[in-house]
Design a binder for these strands. Structure first.
Lengths: 367, 367
DNA sequence: TTGTAAGCGTTATCAC
DNA sequence: GTGATAACGCTTACAA
């Protein structure tokens, strides 16, 4: 159509080296004004069909691509169509599943997602959140780490939508999606109690972590309801890595009257406990919190109470886009249930391996 | 300091509802000009200390936060400090590990990362890549899906840095990081051949996928070198899900002269094969491509050839930031080696379970 | 040390 | 139908 590239033989100072064509270039190439190009790009009505074609061709031949950031600057609805997702670590399967769920819904709404990991470090969390706000993301899905998120209040007031997931923050002021941790672990303990266990141990993460204490509370609640006095030797908090869990389990098995059953507060801890238990003679019933891949392929299969991570992410994303769509109802907190998945390890009775339900695992057979 | 919020009692048309304060507001509050605020924000020299304080206080009290997108518009170095990472699916552990590695390096460079999943769909891939370019990301790390990526050429010419990972694209024109797939699977086959296996099966993903055919080629190469005529009944391509793999393995085990060993082209297929094999009497040696969590906790442990996914992502990110740092050397392709990790399943001999190295697995014992 | 004016690439306003 | 011109929030060039 017109000249493909702004030629720049030796003497061409007025246009130093503009790499990307702008709508001005397109307008010149098509022989129309700026505004007409804008109209065509935005599919606004009231442009002659022939003009539309001419502009389209000019744009294509120049390889024009509209600068979204610049476009947004002047738009009435100043939306970047960007949401931020802040988790502890994208590489962690729990978080990446969450991110995946949010991303899918975001894509359906024409949004892109910026991910940032805090490494569970409040200082980094704050830094990335502010960086995200400075980029004017429309919304934020956050698994909060820090204790104080008031620094988000000004962005919140300025219209940035925020949803917290997995752990609460700015309680009552922001939409939040949580798993029913207390009820989930209560269920796990109930499951073991029903099989006759009285000496049930609980292995949990650091007490500073919301989900860790919630889960511990579920354990305590079930025991209390069953009229069992909690033996503090069987309650171990503070294990963070699977190696910690392995050591802690070794120690649990070494107490005077060792537990016949064990509940692990998350999947890292479950894996560590499994490594420890396979070294001990006495079979111990095990129920883990959080499902994990291959839990069914282990021997026996690992019984877990699982949260639906995808549902967690979807619910958060849906709340977020509802807000972005103009919903102004008061902040709400959604609790998502946990489900018990029996696979064998949690159906072992207290008197060595003789529990009635130990059979389903055995029934599966070995390859 | 000055008025916190632009008051808007009934008659206040000049400033409709500007939610966020701009440097103009800060300037007014501090009683200085626009430019002085800009100087302070950018820590430019030549501003009186008292003025700096005054501006800082005004900015803080207004809750001012600079709009990065607007700031970039006029900057000479028009960098968004944004990189895009496009993979098949962020929720997939392989990809999320890759994303995590890129993200960490990006953060060190002061960059944020936008993730987008293509679902292995070329049309979606193209769409998200163009959306990313329209947002003017400085760089792109892509696990390519489509066959044609020439549409990226204009952005490439305009200065967007691109690195392909895991699979090649725009060969020779763009930096690329690949795993040594052929050599890796060759190694796996060699491992089985050394234990006396002659009937080795290969289970691969769809032949349209680069890594699938590469891995198959490694299998073929090793067999050929060993002087073994390939039995096409033992070569099965096209299994994509773990369910496909389970079925395919069932069928492999049903052929007249069934294999004594099996190589699985990726971890999904390995899992499916494991499910199938545990239903069969005859023990079959198994080597999988790609490591996976708990591979060591299964009974026996699963022998794999593993690629270092984090290294893949790190290498890609480093190449990218080297380009963003001004490196203009010709495009390079880096091959990262794969490592064989023996855990038991691959050390079984061909004559039922009597292979010499079957012992290490048994030695581990059961919990 | 500080301020004025122009401009980044686009959309909004309003006139022709 | 189409086009000047201002404006978005900020940085850069140049003056004072």
């Amino acid at each position: 159509v017109a000249e493909q590239e702004p030629r720049r033989p030796d003497g061409d100072p007025p246009r130093p080296s503009r790499l990307r064509p702008t709508i001005k270039d397109v307008a010149a190439a098509a022989g129309v004004s700026l505004k007409t190009v804008s109209r065509v790009l935005n599919a606004e009505p009231g442009v002659a069909a022939t003009t539309v074609t001419r502009v389209r061709e000019a744009a294509a031949s120049l390889g024009f691509q509209r600068d979204e950031a610049a476009a947004n600057l002047r738009r009435l609805d100043r939306s970047t169509h960007l949401v931020g997702v802040v988790t502890g670590d994208v590489a962690n399967p729990f978080y990446s599943q969450l991110v995946g769920a949010v991303e899918e819904i975001a894509r359906r709404h024409g949004y892109l997602v910026i991910v940032a990991s805090s490494g569970e470090n409040p200082a980094i969390e704050r830094e990335v959140l502010q960086s995200l706000c400075a980029r004017r993301v429309d919304g934020l899905v956050v698994v909060p780490t820090g204790a104080d998120h008031t620094f988000l209040l000004s962005s919140l007031a300025a219209g940035t939508a925020v949803v917290f997931v997995d752990r609460p923050a700015l309680v009552g002021r922001v939409d939040t999606v949580l798993a029913a941790n207390v009820e989930g672990v209560d269920l796990a303990a109930e499951h073991l109690l029903a099989r006759g266990h009285r000496r049930i141990a609980f292995l949990g993460d650091a007490p500073g972590i919301y989900t860790a204490t919630q889960r511990r509370d579920g354990y305590l609640r079930a025991l209390q309801r069953a009229g069992i006095t909690v033996d503090l030797a069987l309650l171990r908090m503070g294990a963070h890595s699977s190696v910690d869990a392995e050591t802690a389990t070794d120690e649990l098995m070494a107490v005077a009257d060792p537990p016949t059953a064990l509940i692990c507060g998350n999947n890292r801890l479950t894996v560590g406990a499994l490594r420890s238990l396979r070294r001990h003679r006495r079979p111990v019933a095990l129920v883990g919190v959080d499902d994990f891949e291959l839990a069914d392929l282990l021997e026996p299969g690992v019984t877990v109470v699982a949260q639906d991570i995808t549902a967690l992410g979807q619910t958060a994303a849906e709340l977020l886009f509802r807000r972005l769509g103009g919903d102004t109802r008061p902040a709400q907190t959604v609790h998502l249930g946990m489900r018990l998945i029996p696979r064998g390890s949690g159906e072992v009775g207290p008197a060595d391996g003789s529990g009635q339900a130990a059979s389903p695992a055995a029934a599966k057979g070995v390859g």
